[in-house]
Amino acid sequence: MSEYEKPLPVLEGFSADFYGFCKQGELRFQRCSECQAWRHVPRELCAECGSWDWEWALSSGKGEVFTFTVVGRALHPAFAEDGPYAVTVVQMDEGVRVLSKVQGVSPEELAIGMRVEVGFEAVTDAIHLPIFNRVSA
């Protein structure tokens, strides 16, 4: 694998767990064991009910495009060759939203409401980013 120059998450604390599951091909979010509320990004306790009990619950991996932007001119040097590229907020069927990208869909085709499903892109040995693919109707 050639040197990967884009920013990477720091594998500490909850982020180590989240991306650890991604490396295994699983999209998991925290879910409160008390009130069953899903949450993302990871937090120490449930802001809905105050419970400290939670698990890394497996997501259905399915959701829809909530909003997006198309970056025409990258403002970080590592993405300078990527433009135009879309960044997408996906609303998971569980209710949480996750920032990611939809691959295989041109920025012109991308639309709010589009159904998508998670996949994983191995950008380094340790980091597999959760990305999304269009679900054909």
């Binding site: 884009k6 920013p7 990477l8 998450p9 720091v10 982020s15 989240f18 990004v41 909003t67 997006f68 932007t69 970056v71 990258a74 403002l75 970080h76 993405f79 990527d82 590229y85 960044v87 907020v89 996750v98 920032l99 990611s100 990208k101 709010i112 950008v123 980091i127 980013l129």
Partner: peptide, 21 residues
């Protein structure tokens, strides 16, 4: 750092543009 930057969501015009959209 952990959930935005890896996807190229790196700067204010990008963060706020999703609200505008």
């Amino acid at each position: 750092r952990d959930y935005y930057l890896p996807f190229g969501f790196t700067a204010p015009p990008q963060w706020y543009s999703v609200m505008a959209r």
